[in-house]
Design a protein around this nucleic acid. Structure first.
Lengths: 109, 109
DNA sequence: CAGTATCCTACATGATACTG
DNA sequence: CAGTATCATGTAGGATACTG
């Protein structure tokens, strides 16, 4: 049993998985691995996400240390999101899941 | 845009991730990789899960082809769950996430 | 542009009692 | 033992309008 932020987890996998379980989180991380992106770029990548939910997911990823947020003091605003090393460490796992999905659901490698 | 079971997904990762997003699914898969297990054994591994939720998760994993269910016709009942190849293909990804979690949250390898 | 602010709801998760 | 059957609930996710 592991405790973290006043919640209990069965094992390390339980704790780790909880952090990326959100509907859009893996998509966000994967897109940021390609390159840093702005809010609207991420919104375009996560087709159908509402601004509220995207903001929620981004804030959680940031507070969990998986992404960085850089705000440029200018008008109109410019904000750039990028992966931290901690976030980048997960990309190999996400890549496996993506290839797994392609293999079983798209019949392509 | 990918369609599957009347739901739309942004990309293969979105689709693949959806299948294992459940709170207990990764834990179940990881436990079954160790060895086939019975219902109560899984319940013990997934500390705190209710029988209803465990059943739900198992049924989904089975219908998604990640696990096999073998029922032995005997009293008292004996049911064994095991990984399919499709399920086993995900273990490497889960292992990465587990090690990631240990690295960042337990300070051990 | 990059978000808030509101409001809403479906579903994942859970607690508990019971059964073939 | 391996589940159903019920009932309950929190929250993730979503729709839409608005703002510095």
């Amino acid at each position: 049993m592991i405790e973290h932020n006043n919640k209990n987890y069965v094992c390390p996998l339980d704790l780790g998985f909880e952090i990326i379980r959100g509907k859009w989180k893996s998509i966000i991380l994967f897109n940021l691995y390609e390159s840093s992106k702005r809010f609207l770029e991420l919104k375009r990548a996560a087709i159908g996400v509402s601004p509220k939910v995207l903001t929620d997911n981004l804030k959680q990823l940031e507070s969990d240390g998986l992404i960085n947020k850089v705000v440029y003091a200018q008008v109109p605003p410019k904000v750039e999101y990028s992966l931290t090393q901690k976030g980048e460490d997960l990309i190999s796992a996400l890549t496996i899941i993506q290839n797994w999905s392609k293999k079983y659901y798209l019949n392509i490698k």
